[in-house]
Amino acid sequence: MESLEVKHLTHHFGFTEILHNINFTLKKGEVVSIVGPSGGGKTTLLHLCAGLLDVAEGEVNNSFKTTAFAFQEGRLLPWKNVIENIAIALLARGEKKSVAIQKAQEIALKFGLEEDDFEKFPKDLSGGMKQRVNFARALVVKPSLLFLDEPFSALDIGLKRELYTHLIESCEENDMSILFITHDLIEAIRLSDEILLLEADPGHIVKTFKYDSPKEKRDDAFVYKESAKIVQDKEIIETFKLNTLELK
């Protein structure tokens, strides 16, 4: 069984402690989100899990066969066009060029890009289109674990929903797992099996929330009801400092 286990993970940047004793497990097919205020060490945690930072204290055991990463700001190669940017993820895995290009074109169409856009460079793409390419690049390799670094934060709601649907579909079809960070509770509730609440200074998990109902059945009513519930939670109020209004 593939899984990602994080045990007693602590991390320092210089003398500042960023993360303190993090423990959780992500099992095959699960979606786990890490929510918390900005500057709370979410990105650091994600990078540690994805192997982009070296683990110094504690353990991260990742037994997923393939992983992919979708970044917040796209991070497309500016000198490659849309198709090349998507195909490069496959090429890095040693796929043949012609096959890679074909798969890239298929997934690009699926992600709402048009054939006219294929030859365009990132500078000619709108923010939304860049993010479509970003997702297509991450999903084209059919990862068994996908890391998401707040990739939805700058998108309009229409595009957000479209991408949610793509993600949920991929989870169903390929039994894909997702670890993603966000500061948007509604988004977390819509997509996750488990939400980890990360409090800042230093980052540590204060609470976990579990949602069992199937993701494709979570309609707006459900999501809003649950999010209304969750903002009443004492830990949420403290972590996100929701009571500042009352302080005044």
Binding site: G51, T67, A68, R75, L77, I88, A89, A92, R93, R137
Partner: peptide, 12 residues
């Protein structure tokens, strides 16, 4: 950032 991206996809 692009280096990081390359790492995340394990570019040779």
């Amino acid at each position: 950032e692009l280096k990081e991206m390359a790492d995340s996809f394990a570019f040779p």
